[in-house]
Amino acid sequence: MSAENLKLKLKIWRQKGPNSAGSFSKYEVAVSPDTSFLEMLDELNDSLERKGEIPIAFESDCREGICGACGLVINGQPHGPVPLITTCQLHMRNFKNGDTIWIEPFRAKAFPVLKDLMVDRTGFEKIQQAGGFISINTGGVPDANEIAIPKDISSLAMDAAACIGCGACVAACKNASAMLFVSAKVSQYALLPQGQPERYERVQKMVKVMDEQGFGSCTNTYACEAECPKGISVTNIARMNRDYMKAKIISKNVEV
């Protein structure tokens, strides 16, 4: 804790509301290298409030990397320069004294900016509501391991289920495509026996809603995988492509 404070120049996107034009505002801060990125913003907001200025709006919740609420584009990278962590897990020791840091909201037509660094990610909710679940009758608690699942398969399903729905994949993609998110949600069920009854219906419904939300198409740049804080693999996208085309070819349902 003896390290000297870092003097940083921040260029932060300020936008009053969804329909107003935004621009970058300059701020200068001195922070301990031990603070987290969001704590630095908290401190800045505190000083802004003391001066009677409007604090910077940004989202956060758990601050331990599991809720997916925080998502900032830091120097052009969603969740900042360190791989496999969320913005809240990023610490200021990763920056150097005198650095200029550009802080922007996720940019995508499907994620409209609400205010400053806050975006509306309702699009993801709608995709989830279209099929990101399994339909089962609730009742007594089933016995553990009642259905045998090979370890490598359950691990793959767990890897896909690690997606926290933060939207960094959309933010990183030059096409603002949501394929990594949707493929993770599709895969976590497609891999497991419990997901089989609705497997092909699910993928068709979720992709349909994904397209309706205005997300772009995937062009396989794999930027999403590189920026994903949970390391979701693009092999999930391959699985979704496979399942989707298979569903379109074999399913007798011409409506979805």
């Binding site: 052009g76 969603p78 550009w102 940019r107 037509k109 030059k174 740049t221 794999y222």
Partner: peptide, 16 residues
């Protein structure tokens, strides 16, 4: 159209 705004810093060099 799906990505109307550009980022001030282009991070794509690092991820693709």
């Amino acid at each position: 159209k799906a990505r109307p705004g550009k980022y001030a810093v282009n991070g794509s060099v690092k991820n693709s």
